[in-house]
Design a protein around this nucleic acid. Structure first.
Lengths: 235, 235
DNA sequence: CTATATTTGTCCGTATGTATC
DNA sequence: TGATACATACGGACAAATATA
């Protein structure tokens, strides 16, 4: 080898190409380090160096005693002024679906009142649910909507869609005023719902949507499974 | 008790009010569970239930053996077309500073080549460093810049600023083409540098900046301490 | 560095009121 | 009415992490 690039990097590039080309699909196990070492004709440590780079890049993840697995490609989820769940997943080539787990009207607390421009104790509609992509849990969400949207819960139950229910309440269009993103660790409840191990990272997004008159119509919080989604801000 | 609201919720509300009113400032320790139990005249488990709700809301966080602490408000970090670190922190009322930990020119790998529109092996400048807010580590970053920016490393060393070094290389302005955000767990290296426990959540942001001619001039990755920052997308 | 006390985390219980089938 | 499940509240014991002398 007269080439200046290190052996381990060449091996890493080869593996990366094989993974991205689909030779090793997401969830698949790579050949053992020993097998890769014989294949490339190098020492196992050289393979380890290459695999470590891929793992650091998040492309694969090793499980002691089990092997090295190709990380499932995270679903791209676009954030912007107009965020619509199903459209987003369609763009990412996935079939998305909701499942509402709670639907109720109750008095709001202080935080909800401030975000929705209400007085504490005013009625609000609350929708909780789970977002699925290709049948796999992608995110938990809790949306709070002002009580003056008459009959929202019934519409939501009928249409199984927040956008459709808002339309039925006379809110034809809405845009996102602000989004705030933080990283948290999954608590027990979230871990069970999202089918991720407890302590796995979750992306928490807090957003407020306004109708075309500038009135707040939705205060939504979403918890994404951190390793199944990547939020994309496209300008 | 003829009241229908649970005891633990009333206690949680009381504590929440005392925290938000500033009675317990951020970073402060709450009285021990035993002390709170005697104060409210309830069992320790009831206090624990109340505190757990506050912790779940992110208002406080408990450290075994140490106590329950009021969570410091995370620094707001605005994301948009024009992202400048120091400006962001100034807007949040913090004093920001960089510290470059590595500065070198080397051949690029396959991913860097693709992101920067180069051929694999072309030279790139690499800047690694730590971002601090009020002296506290906020984020780790690794920026990769194309090699045709002559003398970038020297300029960066002189100015201790990526924006200034780019200006010295003739790139007067640059805008962010795309940003991609995922949640990860801190590995040992990141944990030490950011002074967070290993396994704490980190926000990974991957972005590409373009000059006014649309050429990629920076491929930057940033790892934010998940509980010290909240990324804000303002439209 | 070694106790020792403090504090939270987790587990075992018991009992009661309420909602549901 | 009975059976069952669940949330609430209390009591105790010990483990694990931390602070302190």
């Amino acid at each position: 080898m007269t080439d200046k690039t290190p052996l381990w990097q060449a091996i890493a590039d080869t593996l990366r190409a094989e993974i991205t080309s689909g030779h090793y699909p997401p969830g698949d196990r790579l050949p053992s380090e020993a097998a890769l070492a014989t294949r490339f004709g190098v020492n196992r440590h050289t393979v380890r160096h290459a695999v470590a780079q891929l793992a650091d890049a998040g492309l694969v993840h090793a499980r002691r005693g089990a092997g090295v697995f190709v990380t499932a490609r995270p679903t791209d989820y676009a954030l912007g002024r107009r965020v619509r769940f199903s459209q987003n997943l369609a763009a990412a080539g996935r079939t998305g679906s909701h499942r509402f787990t709670r639907l109720e009207t109750r008095p709001c607390d202080a935080v909800e009142a401030q975000m929705l421009d209400l007085s504490p104790g005013d009625p609000v509609h609350v929708v909780e649910g789970l977002s699925l992509a290709d049948g796999q849990p992608l995110a938990l969400f809790r949306s709070v909507l002002p009580g003056w949207l008459a009959g929202f819960c019934d519409h939501a139950r009928d249409h199984q869609s927040i956008t459709a229910a808002l339309a039925a309440c006379g809110v034809a269009d809405y845009t996102r005023a602000s989004t705030r993103i933080t990283a948290k660790l999954a608590n027990a409840t979230q871990a069970v719902a999202l089918r991720i191990p407890q302590g796995a990272p979750v992306l928490r997004s807090v957003a407020v949507n306004l109708d075309d008159g500038g009135r707040p119509v939705e205060y939504g919080r979403t918890w994404f499974a951190g390793d199944r989604v990547s939020l994309v801000l496209a300008d």
